[in-house]
Simulated scan of single mutants.
Amino acid sequence: MTHRIFEGWHSHGRRVAVATKVSNADWARLPHCRSVMLAEGGKLFFTGKACKRGHVSPRNEHGDCTQCHLMRLAERRDAF
């Protein structure tokens, strides 16, 4: 296991508070940015910031919100 570069107390505290507010404290354990996620070989990272549609959820390697991604998949499924 490698150690991550610490993002700072303010950012860390905000991410943990947001993760516990949405009742998923495991999200706070995800990397805080895309570059750290790629260095660790992961698939998701969590910034704690809302996407342009207002979802606060982890993001994938392309920076897309996972909730928006699920909504797009549902729209495609329902289109047929």
Rank of each mutant, 00 (worst) to 15 (best):
E61L: 13
R4W: 04
D26Y: 05
L44S: 08
G13T: 02
M37G: 05
T47D: 00
L44Y: 15
E7W: 05
T47W: 04
G8P: 00
I5R: 03
M1L: 09
F6A: 13
F6R: 04
H62Q: 11
G41H: 12
H32E: 00
L73Y: 00
G41W: 09
H12R: 12
I5E: 12
R4I: 05
H12N: 06
R15H: 08
N24K: 13
R34Q: 15
V36W: 07
R76F: 08
R76G: 02
K49E: 07
E61R: 12
R77S: 13
R77P: 01
G42I: 10
I5L: 11
R77H: 12
F6Q: 07
R29T: 10
A19E: 01
A17K: 07
S11R: 13
R15M: 02
R53P: 00
M1G: 14
H69S: 08
D64M: 07
R59A: 00
Q67P: 00
F46H: 01
D64C: 04
L30V: 04
T2Q: 10
V18C: 06
T20R: 13
F80P: 06
M71A: 13
D78W: 06
K43Q: 15
R76H: 09
M1W: 11
A28P: 02
C68I: 01
C33Q: 15
K43T: 13
G63W: 10
D64A: 10
Q67M: 15
R53D: 11
A17M: 03
A19F: 14
G63Y: 14
L70K: 01
R59N: 06
P31F: 03
H55S: 11
E7C: 01
H55I: 05
F80S: 05
G41F: 04
E61W: 09
L70G: 06
T2C: 01
N60T: 12
Q67R: 15
R53Y: 13
S11F: 07
V16C: 04
A39L: 10
F45V: 02
A74V: 03
C51E: 02
R72S: 11
G8L: 07
V56I: 15
M37I: 05
T66A: 08
H62K: 14
A28C: 13
A17W: 01
R4E: 08
W27N: 06
